[in-house]
C-alpha cells in the first residue's frame, strides 16, 4: 500500500454517513470509500492516507489481500488525485522513461511483462501502475508484488513454478519475483494491448490518449462518487499531453516474442517532451 497506513480493526460501521451506494458492496462519499464483501470483510479507505480493515473471522487471507491491494488501494490513489492505471510498467535497458502496457484482463499484459523482463527490461509494476505528477510531469511508481502469471503462461515462457509462491490458494497462478529497487520513474509512453488484429498504431491526438487513460483507469467507478471527477480529468489531460501512446493489437493472437518485438519498436519512439 503506497505511503498509506493499514490498520486492522475489529469492526467498521455498516453505513458510511452521506455516502452513495455504488453497486452492491461499496459506499462512497468524497474522501471515503467503504467496501463490505460478504465472508471476506470490510475495508474503509479514507483521505488518501489510511485503510482500516476488519476481516470476517475465518476469511481467506488471500481474499482480504486481494481487496486491500485492489479496490482499497485504488480508492486511496483516487482520493489523492493520483492515477491507478490498469497496466504493467516497464523500463527498457538504458531507457530514460518507462512504458505502461494497459489492457483488459486476459489480453496478456503479465506474460508480455515477463517476456520483457527476460530481455533485460526492468518491470516496475504488474497489473496496476500508480501514476502521479511530479513538477507537472507523469511518474510511474514501482510496486513490490512481482508479476502474476498463470500456469499456462509459465509453461509458455518455460519458467519452472515449483519454487514460486501462488497468488491465491486454489489458483495455479504464481508471483514471479522481479527486482524493482528504484525510485518513481518518468512515464513516457502508454500502450494498450488489445485482442484486435496484430499491429501497432500510434495515437496522435490528446483526446485519444485521454480516452485510453480513462478506459484503463483502475476502479474508475469510484472516481465520481469520491468527488474527484474534475481532478481526474485534469490529471488525465495533463498526462495525455506529455506521453506518446499507441494501440498494440495481437493480444492472444501473436506470439509473446512478436509482441515483445513490437514493444522494442515502441521503445524507439521519440519522446513527446523531456
Amino acid at each position: 500500500m503506497p505511503d498509506a497506513q493499514v490498520l486492522e480493526v475489529d469492526t467498521l460501521p455498516d453505513q458510511l454517513e452521506g455516502a452513495e451506494q455504488v453497486g452492491q458492496y461499496m459506499q462512497i462519499r468524497p474522501g471515503a470509500m467503504l467496501l463490505r464483501v460478504p465472508e471476506v470483510g470490510a475495508f474503509l479507505a479514507e483521505d488518501g492516507t489510511t485503510v482500516r480493515v476488519a476481516p470476517v473471522v475465518g476469511a481467506d487471507p488471500g481474499a482480504v489481500d486481494m481487496y486491500l491491494h485492489g479496490a482499497a488501494r485504488a480508492a486511496i490513489l483516487h482520493q489523492r488525485g493520483e492515477l491507478p492505471l490498469h497496466a504493467s510498467c516497464l523500463l527498457p535497458p538504458d531507457g530514460l522513461a518507462c512504458i505502461a502496457v494497459c489492457g483488459f484482463s486476459g489480453a496478456g499484459k503479465s506474460t508480455l511483462a515477463a517476456e520483457m523482463h527476460r530481455r533485460g527490461w526492468m518491470v516496475l509494476a504488474d497489473d496496476s501502475t500508480r501514476v502521479s505528477l511530479r513538477d507537472g510531469k507523469p511518474f510511474a511508481w514501482p510496486s513490490h508484488r512481482g508479476i502474476k502469471l498463470w500456469q499456462d503462461a509459465c509453461e509458455r515462457l518455460e519458467l519452472p513454478t515449483e519454487k514460486l509462491q501462488t497468488v491465491r490458494t486454489g489458483l495455479q497462478k504464481f508471483f514471479y519475483p522481479v527486482t524493482q529497487d528504484t525510485e518513481p520513474l518518468r512515464l513516457g509512453t502508454v500502450v494498450e494491448l488489445t485482442l484486435s488484429e496484430p499491429g501497432l498504431v500510434e495515437l496522435p491526438s490528446i483526446p485519444e490518449r485521454m480516452a485510453l487513460l480513462t478506459r484503463h483507469t483502475f476502479r474508475q467507478r469510484q472516481v465520481a462518487p469520491l468527488g474527484m471527477l474534475k481532478q481526474h480529468l485534469q490529471l488525465v489531460g495533463t498526462i495525455a499531453g506529455q506521453i506518446t501512446a499507441g494501440i498494440l493489437g495481437g493480444g492472444r493472437r501473436s506470439t509473446v516474442e512478436e509482441l515483445g518485438n513490437a514493444l522494442e519498436e515502441v521503445a524507439q519512439w521519440k519522446p513527446l517532451s523531456s
Partner: peptide, 15 residues
C-alpha cells in the same frame, strides 16, 4: 469479463 471487472470490487482474474 470486462463487465464483471467493471462492476465487481475485484478482477475476476484474481478470484
Amino acid at each position: 469479463r470486462r463487465v464483471f471487472d467493471y462492476y465487481a470490487a475485484a478482477s475476476a482474474a484474481d478470484m
